[in-house]
Write a protein that binds this DNA or RNA. Structure first.
Length: 308
DNA sequence: ACTATTTCCTGGATGC
DNA sequence: TGCATCCAGGAAATAG
């Protein structure tokens, strides 16, 4: 389940490999297509385009393109009534969904099942999009001004961050997952940052104190940075462009740890459903909304070691 | 304008 | 072993 750190890892890997290469042609799998734009529109946009760079916006991979001024693209420009010089910047947008993967490989590399797109590059290699669960989406932006939603979690200023949740009755976990507020946070990093900031996922965003939101932002940013450094979390089958796994799953303190001991207090981590999603939390460190304001019982610490 | 719920999809895990 | 059922998840669509 690629979230911000995983997508960042993939985007960096792609940028390193295909920046400066040219997409000569693209094959798009037969229907039902996991596409947002039409296959025709995608092909028209990406074919004969120079890859200027690859970057991440939220959970989207953005491939910045520039139409080549080669013979074939001149004819293309003429045909489509576009004037050379303007409208030559475009973007290919890849969303990996749950199980999406991209690979850069030689043309004779084994064709994985569920390969939905193959772009042929001038270097002779292929850029492939593979997605068994078909939650991924491919699309293009003609003007090169793709809008990815809310604020980047790693850039957002404190004032803005606090503002995002003001007047929002929805559970904080739900708000963290809302891409129109913050882009890039998914189930894993929402749970990890809430655990770190000691905030119960079901608490209303509007009712969080500024101090708690300050803690949450700090935790979220620290965790995302560390996860990027460790090339993401490999839950189920996440791998980067090279097919290599990430390491951050070894650092998880809450996510996927149901029944295990909290690294902070030794209490048993439990799993509840918030916003229709599994949410892992420590019932002692993250007090539920209805326990808010009650005094905590003093309990013996268990001498467990934190891993972060 | 918000918020909650349902839907899409497949592979892997679980249960009988 | 084999078959059915459930579950995971992001985000768009739908309903309240």
């Amino acid at each position: 389940m690629p979230e911000l750190p995983e997508v960042e890892t993939i985007a960096r890997g792609l940028d390193k490999r295909v920046r400066g290469d040219v997409i000569e042609s693209i094959w798009l799998g037969s229907k039902p297509e996991p596409l947002k734009s039409s296959a025709f529109e995608i092909a028209r946009t990406v074919e004969n385009s120079l890859i200027v760079g690859v970057r991440r916006m939220g959970k989207h991979i953005v491939v910045d393109l520039e139409h080549c001024v080669g013979r074939s693209s001149r004819r293309r420009l003429h045909k489509s009534r576009e004037k050379p010089g303007d409208n030559t910047r475009a973007q290919w947008i890849i969303h990996l969904g749950m199980s999406g993967r991209v690979q850069v490989c030689p043309p004779d590399a084994e064709l994985l099942k569920h390969t939905h797109a193959i772009a042929k590059l001038a270097s002779g290699r292929e850029l492939r999009f593979v997605d068994p669960r078909r939650f991924g989406r491919l699309s293009v932006s003609q003007n090169g001004e793709f809008e990815a939603g809310g604020s980047e979690p790693l850039d957002v200023e404190l004032d803005k961050f606090i503002d995002l949740f003001r007047g929002r009755a929805t559970p904080i976990k739900s708000a963290l997952l809302n891409q129109k507020l913050l882009r890039g946070v998914g189930n894993i990093y929402a749970d990890e940052s809430l655990w770190s900031a000691q905030i119960h996922p079901a608490r209303s965003g509007a009712r969080l104190k500024e101090k708690e939101l300050e803690r949450l932002r700090k935790a979220l940013q620290r965790i995302l940075r560390k996860a990027i450094q460790m090339r993401g979390s490999s839950i189920s089958d996440f791998v980067d462009v090279e097919g290599k796994q990430g390491d951050y799953q070894q650092r998880h303190q809450a996510y996927g740890r149901e029944g295990k001991k909290c690294f902070r207090c030794g209490c048993v981590i439990k799993r509840i459903i918030v916003a229709g999603r599994s949410s892992y939390l420590c019932p002692r460190c993250q007090r539920s909304p209805r326990h808010q304001g009650r005094t905590r019982k003093k309990t013996k610490r268990t001498g467990l070691v934190r891993t972060s």
